Amino acid sequence: MTVATMSHATAELTRQDRCDRCGAQAFARATLPGAGGVLLFCGHHFRAHESALVAAGAEIHDERHRLQDEVRTPER
């Protein structure tokens, strides 16, 4: 893994990072072994593909915990 790829693999996802499947905000990144391809997923699509990505040996960066942090209680 190169230094540039390594820093990309550990960098936090931002609001500009978008799911490769639907375009929603990405909360998970999978770096595929070998070619080093990177896939970004929203929580829904990552959940749907997580087991296949893990089985393929992908390096996973999961920030879905931030979904709970971003939920706001409506003011009354």
Score class of each variant (00 low, 15 high):
A26Y: 03
G34M: 02
T10C: 02
A11P: 01
V71Y: 06
R76S: 13
H8M: 10
G37V: 04
A30W: 03
P33C: 04
G34V: 03
M1T: 08
S51C: 02
F41L: 09
A48K: 12
P33G: 05
G57W: 12
R72W: 00
F27K: 03
E75F: 07
P74C: 05
G57T: 14
L13N: 02
T2H: 09
T10L: 11
T73G: 02
A52W: 08
L53G: 10
R76A: 15
E50P: 02
H49L: 04
C19T: 10
E12M: 00
T2I: 07
T5C: 01
G37S: 14
R15M: 04
R21A: 15
T73F: 07
R15S: 09
M6L: 10
R29N: 06
Q16F: 06
A11D: 07
G43E: 15
D62P: 00
L13I: 03
A30Y: 06
R66I: 07
A24C: 12
E59D: 12
R66W: 04
A55S: 14
E70R: 08
C42K: 08
R15E: 11
I60L: 14
L40H: 14
A28H: 01
F46S: 10
V38G: 02
H45G: 06
D17V: 04
Q16H: 08
P74G: 07
A11M: 09
A26V: 09
G36Q: 06
M1H: 07
E12H: 01
I60P: 06
A58W: 06
A9N: 14
A55N: 09
L40C: 05
D20L: 00
D62T: 00
D20T: 00
A26T: 08
G36E: 12
H45F: 09
H49N: 12
D17G: 08
V54P: 05
A48Q: 14
L40F: 11
E70S: 04
T2M: 07
D69K: 07
A4W: 08
V3L: 11
